[in-house]
Amino acid sequence: MKNSITVKLAPAPRMTVLSALAPPAATLAALVITWQVAVTAGGVQPAILPSPQRILQQGWEARTTIWENTLPTLQETLLGFAVSLTVAWTLAILIDFSPGLRRALVPLLVASQAIPIIAIAPLMVIWFGFGMLPKVIVIALVTFFPVTVGLIDGFNRTDRDAINLLRSMGANRWKQFVYVRLPSALPSFFTALRIGIAYAVTGAIFAEYVGAERGLGIYMAMMKNSFRTDLVLAAVAVTAFVSVCLFLLTYVAERAIIPWHSKARRSWHG
């Protein structure tokens, strides 16, 4: 029964949460233990490479400061990503409706990805100061592209025969979009969303690193300058944790918004 609309994309997790988390958790534990043993046995200086135990301990002691720096990073990430999603949806829909715009915009979108963020981010601080705005711009700049491309691609993935069916029913371009193109694109969108959210957190850290009042990025920069390698790594661990949480949230959103996708896949393949 593969003759309905199928869209092949990264599958939503099907296993129970526990069985999905066990293998990466075990791998991580093995790495951390090796690290701990190596550092202790080798007598490496904490300023060069602290042991996991020290990172945990010092991180815990600095928890209030780390938390105060995590919140702004999270806020920027979410705000920047919201801006990015708005831009991506608007562009993708405009491009879907207008071949002229597609020819005009797509090369520019591709070119926008050639902008070296490493050079632009410090300029943003000069132009817009140390507040939220430059971070939001950097995050939007690094994430809107994969989401836009994922959406455009998703719209185009729509089965031509499905469009013809809608046309035979008398659907105009707008109705074709609402009834078929949009739902057909949603699985692609969620895949792009996952790529985007991973970039968003990195983008936020990077934007803060070059200048901010608060945030995990500037915290890492300051701790590095005072040779607190352990606290830098503690902040890295928090960043990774935030990324993973946001990443998992996209699956929750996917389940809520397109529950039919994983169910349909499951029945086709099993």
């Binding site: 003759n3 309905s4 609309i5 025969d161 499905a162 008398g170 659907a171 009834y179 039919w260 169910k263």
Partner: peptide
């Protein structure tokens, strides 16, 4: 058409009433 083209995001009732809705 040759393919059934039932949309996975619509229930059977929603799929079968699609033409009227579009109209």
């Amino acid at each position: 058409p040759q393919k059934d083209l039932l949309f996975p995001w619509r229930s059977i009732l929603e799929n079968t009433s699609l033409g009227l809705e579009v109209a």
